[in-house]
Design a protein around this nucleic acid. Structure first.
Lengths: 337, 337
DNA sequence: TTGTATATTGGAATCGATTCCAAATAAAGT
DNA sequence: ACTTTATTTGGAATCGATTCCAATATACAA
């Protein structure tokens, strides 16, 4: 508690104790040239003695720039991906001596505006805006007043830089993997909306088949809500049709989980009788299913890194040509194929 | 981009345009008394015109205090709980006009120390330290140099305030629920370590039985690693013994998921023939199993709130009598009981 | 040795807020 | 009308860093 109240030392204290001017101390602090080795060491010694650390408020006030990056999340809360994204962003920020400041807006527009105010007041280097799943977003105009990068989403007009998963590549690689294992009739349980993941993965499915010279059979492609019974029923139907598929590409890991249930009830063994591949790599599910699920990983960690990197190195400005990056979804091998 | 470079206005600008002194502006900004209604309105008008906002760096420098709270997480990454905790902390921080600054240390001690340096430099109001599951932790001495609150963990010597789930209550309520539904032979698949969750939930199990006047039968209590096959086999054994249990209390939701598998293979229907209750309420699992799993929720959101609240309102100081709070785990009703 | 170019150094000014004190105004009391 | 007392106000000092400029020290050349 003593430690807690003790007024911490300032650059003045250091200068006085070291018998030099504040300018000199500042110079050693910031690795400027034109300081003799002797004085540098002397100053460093005093700094260590005093346990002196520059206060970031003072630095910011004077230099007009912080070492903070804002991360605004929209209800990302509910998805377990969140943390990979945060970790990626943090690791990259850390590499630039920066730190993350977090605000979750819970999809509330007032909160979003308040969040922007905060970021503005704090003079952050820039902000990331992360959505809970790959989607177009409509953001307030004020987003253009700060350097910003969108993660797992993109602005309708493409005027802000964004980084999203490469859904097509993901779908294509997933299906290509099944093809490589000899499967020719590959069922696809897709989701019903028209979000990028849905259309992208379907496109990937088609491309993979085309590349392997396998004809596209519409009866193998189904759409189901992401709900236990819907997927269960869809799977049963899909597998009971004549010339049933020998492999299943599922829109996501949850879908795969319910498909597993259906397959089990049909007494079809995974992977012996039916191979299954998922999408998302939600560890909690994929790694814990029986058998563990082979799946495509969403590049959340990498998206977080890329976004921060671009923010710091790319000096992003809103413009019609803002980069729109897609990052690949790698395959995660488990036991279901 | 114009907006992006424009030097934002200062309190001086406001004072000049409003024809008052900076002191007056500061007074209206901070709701101090002794400002006539007329000048107050005049100043407010200019502030709105200019879109003026005080820069937090300047405020911090002068007042020596920020509106930031540090959140240091230890590898919490991998658990989907993380975000509830963060949300709780953020909501409470927000209510005090404060914001969260996040650092994940990935269990790395150097990073932890660096994180503390950062927090110190930034003069945060205090820090939360959150572990990835309820456990004792051994933290560097430096933690005592800042107000700190531990979340989902506690220091061995109990000298830092902490907030953790009430494992005993959780276990007790879980089992009491089963008892209320008429079950008398209740199996318990526990985990093998001696972490608080394991001993606490077992204690809760015993207390619930005792309260209901049901004898404790050691053959109903098993320990299994949290691994698919281990739980699967344990469940099979447990259910095949003479006078099999009619209900199952599982250490956590993952355990329950694998127990489901075993029950299905034994052709025992949930909940008709066997009731199942889990623990943790990992939405992704519990809500998506078939049938959806009734479970005890870990109070991550509330722990986050409590921790921030205590940090701000409780003025925590390290002391032998630091509060050690346990928060209840509420029951989440689904369909497995 | 002396003059010139170069490398170090000290310290005042600055960033943008808050706070305190003295001065100016208004209100109250006789 | 004239103190006395209470409210409002302006503005200088301050927080703790960086930066720039002038001053000093040192190196180099003739």
């Amino acid at each position: 508690m003593d430690a807690m109240q003790k007024r911490s030392s300032t650059i003045q204290d250091v200068a006085r104790r070291a018998g030099v001017g504040v300018g000199t101390v500042s110079r050693v602090l910031n690795d400027h040239p034109n300081v003799t080795q002797a004085t540098r060491e002397q100053v460093l010694r005093v700094i260590a003695d005093l346990g002196y650390r520059p206060k970031s408020a003072a630095v910011t006030l004077r230099t007009r720039q912080t070492r903070e990056i804002g991360l605004i999340t929209d209800e990302i809360a509910t998805t377990p991906f969140a943390f990979d994204l945060i970790r990626g962003a943090q690791d990259e920020a850390w590499a630039h001596q920066s730190i993350l400041v977090l605000i979750n807006t819970s999809g509330n527009l007032d909160l979003l505006n308040a969040a922007l105010d905060q970021m503005y007041d704090r003079q952050v280097r820039g902000v990331l805006y992360a959505a809970m799943f790959h989607q177009p977003v409509n953001l307030p105009e004020r987003f253009r007043e700060l350097p910003a990068v969108l993660v797992d989403c993109y602005s309708e007009d493409r005027s802000l830089p964004s980084v999203v998963p490469n859904e097509i590549q993901g779908g294509q690689d997933a299906v290509a993997t099944l093809l490589q294992h000899g499967h020719r009739r590959i069922g696809f349980i897709n989701y019903t909306t028209d979000q990028p993941a849905v259309v992208g993965r379907l496109e990937g499915y088609r491309r993979a088949l085309a590349a392997a010279g396998v004809a596209y059979d519409p009866t193998l492609v189904r759409q189901a809500d992401i709900a236990p019974e819907a997927v269960y029923r869809t799977t049963i139907q899909l597998m009971q049709q004549p010339d049933r598929p020998t492999a299943l590409f599922c829109f996501n890991d949850r879908t795969a989980m319910w498909a597993y249930d259906a397959l089990r009830d049909l007494a079809l063994r995974v992977p012996e009788e039916v191979a299954v591949i998922g999408f998302d790599n939600q560890e909690l599910l994929a790694a814990n299913l029986r058998p563990p699920l082979t799946t495509m990983q969403l590049p959340h960690y990498e998206m977080g890194r890329w976004a921060v990197h671009h923010l710091i190195a790319g000096n992003p400005q809103p413009s019609p040509t803002a980069p729109q990056v897609q990052l690949d979804c790698p395959l995660v091998w488990r036991a279901s194929v």
